[in-house]
Amino acid sequence: STGEEYIAVGDFTAQQVGDLTFKKGEILLVIEKKPDGWWIAKDAKGNEGLVPRTYLEPYS
């Protein structure tokens, strides 16, 4: 699937089932941008889950 690459600007630990845990500096592939501010993203290992958009910045 296609998506946009974003870099994590902080650590995030999953708070509920379906969230994706990530560390600062990780590159995430954003698959869907939901209007509530929680985006669906995939990490380098292929894990998929919800992430808070405030922790992400476009990666170029």
Rank of each mutant, 00 (worst) to 15 (best):
G18P: 13
K34A: 04
S1R: 05
P52I: 06
G49Y: 01
K34E: 09
G10C: 09
F12Q: 14
I40R: 11
G25T: 08
I31D: 09
K45H: 13
I27W: 09
I27F: 13
D19Q: 15
T21W: 03
D11A: 13
G10M: 10
I40N: 14
S60T: 07
V17R: 10
G37H: 09
L20N: 01
K42C: 05
A44V: 08
W38L: 15
E32F: 06
I7H: 05
G3I: 14
F22T: 11
D43R: 05
T13W: 02
D19V: 14
V17H: 04
I31K: 12
Q15C: 06
Y55F: 10
N47V: 08
E32K: 05
T2V: 02
A44D: 05
K24H: 04
D43E: 03
E57S: 03
W39T: 02
L29P: 02
Y59N: 06
P58R: 09
V51I: 09
K23A: 12
A41S: 07
I27D: 02
L56G: 00
P58F: 08
L29F: 07
E32V: 06
Y55G: 13
T2S: 06
E4G: 10
E26Q: 12
A44C: 05
D11K: 09
T13V: 03
G18H: 09
D43P: 02
Q15P: 12
V9H: 05
Y6E: 01
F22Q: 01
I27Q: 07
L29W: 12
L29A: 09
T13R: 03
S60E: 12
S60D: 09
E26H: 11
I40G: 07
F22A: 12
P35M: 08
Q16I: 03
T2G: 04
L29I: 07
I27S: 08
E57K: 07
I40W: 07
F22G: 08
L50Q: 14
G49H: 02
R53A: 12
Q15Y: 06
G25F: 03
T21D: 10
W39E: 00
V30A: 09
K34C: 05
Y59K: 11
D43N: 08
S1M: 13
I27C: 13
Y6D: 00
V51K: 00
F12G: 04
F12K: 14
I40C: 14
I7C: 13
V30N: 01
S1D: 15
A8L: 02
V30P: 03
A14F: 02
T54A: 14
D36K: 14
R53S: 13
V51M: 02
G18Q: 14
V9Y: 02
G37M: 10
S1L: 06
P58T: 07
K45L: 06
W38S: 15
T13M: 08
T2Q: 06
S60M: 15
T54K: 14
E48L: 09
P35A: 08
W39C: 15
L20A: 02
L50D: 04
A41Q: 00
T54I: 05
E5L: 03
E48T: 10
V17A: 12
K42S: 13
P52W: 15
D36W: 02
G46Q: 10
A41N: 00
I27T: 12
W39D: 07
P58L: 10
A44I: 06
D43A: 05
L50K: 14
G3T: 14
K24L: 04
A41Y: 00
I31G: 10
F12C: 15
D19F: 15
V30C: 04
E57R: 03
K34S: 03
G37A: 15
A41T: 05
L28E: 00
E57D: 02
V9F: 02
P35H: 06
V51E: 00
G18R: 12
E32S: 12
Q16K: 15
L56V: 07
V9E: 10
P58V: 09
Q16V: 05
E26V: 06
G49S: 01
D11H: 08
A44Q: 10
E48C: 05
P58M: 07
V17L: 05
E26C: 07
D43F: 01
T54D: 15
K34M: 11
W38R: 15
T54R: 14
W38M: 15
Y55I: 12
Q15L: 08
V51R: 00
T21S: 11
L50F: 05
A8W: 00
I40V: 11
F22H: 02
A8V: 06
E32Q: 09
Q15G: 13
W38Q: 15
G25M: 04
D36E: 06
K42E: 10
W38K: 15
S1F: 12
G37L: 08
F12P: 03
Y59P: 15
E32P: 01
I7Y: 06
G3F: 15
D11C: 14
D11I: 01
I31Q: 09
E48S: 05
S1C: 12
L29Y: 10
L28H: 01
E26L: 02
I7D: 01
F12V: 03
E4Y: 06
F12I: 14
A41H: 00
K24Q: 06
Y6N: 03
Q16E: 14
Q15R: 13
T13K: 04
G25K: 10
Q15D: 08
W39Y: 13
D19A: 15
G25W: 02
P52L: 14
K23P: 04
Q16N: 11
A14R: 09
A41F: 02
Q15I: 07
Y55H: 11
A14L: 04
K45M: 05
N47C: 07
K23L: 08
K33F: 05
V51L: 08
A14Q: 09
G46A: 12
D11M: 04
F22P: 01
A44N: 08
A8K: 00
V17M: 08
L50E: 04
W38I: 15
I31V: 07
G37Q: 14
K24P: 03
V30D: 00
L56A: 02
W39A: 14
K23G: 07
Y6V: 11
E48H: 15
E5V: 01
D36P: 03
A41M: 13
Q15S: 13
W38D: 15
N47M: 12
D36C: 06
S60V: 07
K23M: 05
L56K: 00
G10I: 13
T54E: 15
D19R: 15
S60K: 07
E4I: 12
G25L: 03
Y59Q: 05
V30I: 13
K42Q: 12
D36Q: 02
E26S: 10
V17I: 10
G46W: 07
R53G: 12
V17F: 12
G3E: 13
A8I: 02
A8R: 00
G25V: 00
K23E: 13
D36H: 06
L50N: 14
P35Q: 10
G37F: 12
V51S: 04
S1Q: 13
L29K: 05
V51F: 01
S60W: 08
G37N: 07
L20D: 00
G25H: 10
G25Y: 06
V17W: 01
K45W: 11
K24C: 06
Y55P: 08
A44T: 06
W38A: 15
T21G: 09
P52R: 15
L29C: 04
L29N: 08
Y59R: 13
T54P: 06
L56Y: 00
D43T: 07
G37P: 08
W38P: 15
F12H: 14
P35Y: 07
L29Q: 09
V30G: 02
N47H: 09
L29H: 03
V9P: 01
D19C: 15
G46M: 11
D43M: 03
N47W: 09
E4Q: 07
Y6T: 02
G49N: 01
E32T: 10
G37I: 14
P52C: 14
Q15M: 04
K24G: 04
D36V: 10
A14W: 03
P52T: 11
K23V: 08
A8N: 00
A44F: 10
L20G: 01
L50C: 14
E4N: 10
G49V: 02
V9L: 04
S60H: 05
Y55V: 14
A44M: 05
P35S: 10
D36M: 12
I40K: 12
L28W: 00
A14E: 05
K45P: 06
R53D: 15
G3P: 14
G37K: 15
N47L: 10
D19W: 14
P58I: 05
K23H: 10
V9G: 10
T2P: 03
K24A: 04
S60L: 05
Y55S: 14
K34Q: 09
E26I: 02
V51T: 07
A44Y: 10
F12E: 01
